[in-house]
Design a protein around this nucleic acid. Structure first.
Length: 268
DNA sequence: ATGGTCGCCGAGCGA
């Protein structure tokens, strides 16, 4: 059994005590982190390695930044979205939002932090998000075509609520970039080409959330959104044993505004 | 309630 979790930590330095406590308590085999908000050199690798994890980081100053933690060997590490360009600031790979790696030679994991996209009136925000999603769809298709028998997990903070069941107030959020049809259409493109939304494969219940804003008592009122997702290619979906959201970290002191989401695959 | 709350870093942006 291999357990893979995704967790937007909203600064790995500010969240280090919470992250270390959660790693000790849950000991997932692989953890995909988003919004580490630091350069590679500032990533607290020693503390995490002490818990038995190997670390692959794609950092950036102040904003964004992603990382993969693994108790199993990592190889084939690619700290960018393959196929995307990044020389200009408006190009999909200009920001540190993607890293992928092969775990123990048997699972490819892709860790992403998709652009938020608000406000939808600004092309440098919403247009950037949609172009970034187009590049992700391209990459997802290439992975299906080139290694269909290798389990692949594409997970992270998608900044997309796939349906109104994933939003506490669908009418209030209808014109937000997280809920717009253009964002949802691109998310569905991933499902239509053969990827499985792991949470939706184990429950059809509405109101499963992974993010609660810091403002206005959103956590206390359960005013949440489901925007952190684990998508499985058919080879991985065949091995799906369970999936869920771990709400406990969101209730701790100094919590991130996101909480971990996980999947278990029956692989040796 | 024309704000609210965090984290970046030391003003205002991003979420």
């Amino acid at each position: 059994m291999v357990r893979i979790a995704t967790f937007n930590v909203n600064s790995v330095k500010a969240r280090l005590p919470n992250l270390l406590a959660w790693l000790k308590a849950e000991a997932p085999d692989v953890v995909l982190l988003q919004e580490i908000k630091c350069v590679d050199e500032a990533f607290p690798a020693l503390e995490i390695e002490d818990l038995g994890y190997q670390v692959a980081v794609h950092g950036q100053k102040t904003y964004n930044g992603v990382a993969i933690l693994s108790r199993l060997p990592l190889e084939d590490i690619t700290p960018r979205l393959p196929g995307a360009t990044g020389s200009e600031d408006d190009q999909p790979d200009a920001q540190a939002r993607y890293i992928e790696a092969l775990v123990d030679g048997k699972i490819r994991v892709c860790c992403l932090y998709l652009p938020n996209g608000n406000p939808i009136s600004e092309d440098r925000k919403f247009g950037y998000k949609l172009r970034w999603m187009d590049k992700l769809v391209d990459r997802a298709r290439i992975l299906l075509e080139t290694e269909p028998d290798l389990p692949v997990v594409i997970a992270g903070d998608y900044n997309v609520c796939p349906t109104d069941d994933d939003v506490y107030d669908p009418k209030g959020w209808a014109d937000d970039a997280l809920c717009r049809p253009e964002s949802r259409q691109r998310f569905r493109a991933l499902l239509h080409m053969g990827y499985t939304d792991a949470i939706r494969a184990v429950t059809k219940a509405p109101g499963v959330y992974t993010f609660w804003d810091y403002q206005a008592g959103a956590w206390q009122k359960d005013h949440g959104l489901r925007i952190d997702h684990l998508l499985l290619n058919p080879a991985a979906a065949d091995k799906l044993a369970n999936a869920g959201v771990d709400r406990k970290p969101r209730g701790e002191q100094k919590a991130s505004d996101h909480t971990p989401t996980w999947v278990e695959l029956t692989l040796d």
